[in-house]
Design a protein around this nucleic acid. Structure first.
Length: 357
DNA sequence: AAATCGGGGCA
DNA sequence: TGCCCAGATTT
């Protein structure tokens, strides 16, 4: 076992020196703010997807102080489309915490970093090692996969026992004086060679001692136990306008898309016919007896999220006069550009049937 | 310990 | 479709 561990670390570092051509804007970065920003953006997000967002955030907020001073709505707008919006909220809170508590100087100990909003075990280890070369092993999806395959560990990675086991192994494997390079190399290796599907085993420098390779377990490792239930939901959006204004609200409920905006929402248990929707009690509760004219009815839009499938339909109506709709605000249409909306709404708005553009 | 939180690429 | 992605937080 000890021999296998030494082999693992040595071959990995060799691979990094000789064969690793992976290039990313934040690689080798030493500014903790930039490292932090990249790590938050990349949580559960592919590098190619996060890359342009990173560039935009750095351009708009070059320092943590700039981000701390930023307008929240503006930051959400910049984050729009990236998903997992709690990351954005927590990121802003952390920036303000760093500004206030640490006077804009990014904290440089693992415990201080870990205590910031939105920073868990992985991100704390990543910042601590990349920015300060502190000896903390990162444990992300790549590391779980590489270690489970090479050492042939079938403990489920989404179990408490699995997280503990892999974390301890990762920490033991870490060369304490070379944490930054090693951590980066391990994740690159997982992304480039030991990929989830079709890993490059034939050219893998670790193949000789890889348990999964020799026992035909590549496609079986790592093991995950939890399977998720996907719910179907039906969102009927009433785009109610009066002159050059439209009713919108910011989502605050304990639900998806917190802090993003939307039109008047009537959710139904199944796909609703537009005419019966407009004559239903939900609509009447919102609009009362207000006189309106239907100007457009969209097709059904579908969006697949991790735990639910959202079917959305958009119905444009023009009101004869403004009315009070609890929770919603009559907002000038030309200011919607400054607000963040869920992907399904921006997709609708940019389609031919849209209200804008 | 389990459930949730987005959006996109790929087989 | 199902799986995965530089995970964290809440329940």
């Amino acid at each position: 076992m000890r021999a296998a561990r030494l082999f693992f670390t040595e071959k990995l570092l060799d691979w990094n020196l000789e064969m690793n051509n992976r290039s990313m804007p934040w690689k080798g970065e030493k500014d903790p703010y930039r490292i932090w920003l990249s790590e938050i953006i990349l949580q559960q997000t592919r590098v190619e997807q996060g890359w342009p967002y990173y560039e935009r955030f750095i351009a708009n907020y070059p320092t943590v102080s700039d981000l701390a001073a930023a307008n929240e709505e503006e930051v959400f707008r910049l984050w729009q489309g990236l998903g997992y919006y709690a990351r954005c909220k927590n990121m802003l809170a952390a920036a303000r915490e760093i500004q206030q508590t640490y006077h804009g100087q990014f904290p440089n100990t693992h415990d201080q970093i870990k205590a910031l909003k939105g920073i868990g075990p992985y991100t704390a280890a990543a910042i601590a090692s990349f920015a300060f070369n502190l000896p903390h092993a990162v444990l992300d999806g790549n590391v779980f996969r590489v270690l489970s395959r090479f050492f042939g560990i079938d403990t489920p990675i989404d179990s408490t026992a699995g997280k503990k086991e892999f974390a301890e192994l990762a920490q033991e494997l870490l060369p304490k004086d070379n944490a930054a390079t090693y951590n980066q190399a391990l994740m690159d290796f997982g992304a480039v060679v030991c990929k989830p599907q079709r890993p490059e085993c034939s050219s893998c420098p670790l193949q000789k001692k890889c348990v999964a390779y020799h026992q035909q377990l590549i496609s079986l490792l790592p093991v995950k136990t939890k399977k998720l239930q996907i719910k179907k939901r039906y969102f009927n959006y009433i785009i109610a306008s009066w002159k050059d204004k439209v009713y919108i609200r910011k989502r605050t409920a304990d639900d998806i898309w917190q802090n993003l905006h939307e039109f008047v929402l009537i959710e139904s248990k199944e796909a609703a016919d537009s005419t019966q929707l407009l004559s239903g009690t939900d609509f009447k509760e919102l609009f009362g007896t207000t006189v309106y004219e239907i100007t457009r009815i969209s097709k059904q839009f579908k969006q697949q999220l991790t735990h639910q499938t959202i079917h959305s339909q958009f119905i444009n109506i023009e009101l004869a006069q403004p009315t009070d709709i609890p929770g919603y605000q009559l907002t000038p249409t030309d200011t919607l550009d400054n607000l963040a909306f869920p992907k399904t709404i921006t997709t609708f708005l940019q389609s031919k049937t849209g209200l804008l553009l």
